[in-house]
């Protein structure tokens, strides 16, 4: 019964290597105190248990203030694992940290772009092209991405550079991510994550806020925390200092 499938796979190479970019959650570590970490982590998880289940995590050390010697990666991994969070690697830090990470079998990634400036989108670039119907749904412009069709449950749209503009609804169970701003000309019912590389000046704009989750530069709010006056109204979500705030779009 499975013979035809077997012969088809035999002719193909075992694997191919491809470049891929994946959005990951980074835990920016300021100092390492196992007890405090355990406690704070448990608090966070209680707020959004589904978000954290089997979450792949990178430890960010760009803002680490303690000594490299205090960092016990084995203990850190242990704490995360008890909460079913999978530590993949370490970002940033000096050579000592790099060595410690290697000893703990963690991958080391070069320092973060938390403060890297965002490319300024060229306003004239998006206007003229792609007016015909039936063209591929997703248009990649130099400075961002323009999507004309609804983003459906289970779909993910990512603008690794610049802004993401969606001229349709974002359905429940869909996810949209951008390095810069996210504009949604329709209701936002799924998840929207702006400033995924750490741009704290990014915003999310939508015509009706019905989101499952909104996030700017890693600061997020879930649906439960968004049920204020701005629910189901046009809204802008932005960071004010360290606090994610929701403003009405119409005044």
């Amino acid at each position: 019964m499975s013979e035809p499938a077997a012969t088809a796979t035999e002719n193909r190479a075992c694997f191919e290597l491809r470049g891929a970019s994946q959005t990951l959650t980074v835990m920016e570590l300021h100092h390492f105190d196992p007890d405090a970490l355990e406690r704070d982590l448990r608090d966070k998880i209680r707020q959004a248990p589904n978000f954290f289940r089997d979450l792949p995590l990178v430890i960010g050390l760009d803002h680490y203030e303690g000594n490299a010697a205090d960092l016990d990666f084995f203990q850190l991994i242990g704490i995360c694992r008890t909460h079913s969070i999978q530590v993949l690697g370490v970002r940033g830090g000096d050579d000592d940290i790099r060595r410690l990470a290697r000893n703990a079998a963690l991958a080391w990634l070069p320092g973060g772009q938390a403060s890297a400036p965002r490319p300024v989108p060229d306003p004239e670039q998006d206007t003229a092209e792609n007016t015909e119907e039936g063209a591929p749904a997703i248009t990649s412009t130099g400075a961002g991405r323009l999507v004309k069709q609804p983003v459906r449950s289970g779909q993910q749209v990512y603008a690794p550079e610049g802004d993401l503009i969606i001229m349709a609804p974002v359905g429940a169970g869909a996810e949209v991510l951008a390095a810069g701003h996210i504009h949604i000309y329709g209701p936002l019912r799924g998840r929207a994550l702006a400033g995924v590389h750490g741009d704290t000046s990014a915003s999310i704009f939508c015509q009706s806020l019905e989101a499952e989750l909104v996030s700017v530069a890693g600061h997020y709010k879930i649906s439960e925390d968004l049920q204020g006056d701005d629910w189901r109204t046009p809204a802008r979500i932005r960071l004010e200092g360290d606090v994610l705030t929701v403003d009405p779009l119409t005044r």
Binding site: A137, P150, V151, S153, G154, G173
Partner: peptide, 13 residues
């Protein structure tokens, strides 16, 4: 409705 939304996404991809 949610599942239909999902299947529409699959049709498109």
């Amino acid at each position: 409705v949610r599942d239909s939304d999902r299947i529409l996404g699959i049709l498109q991809s």
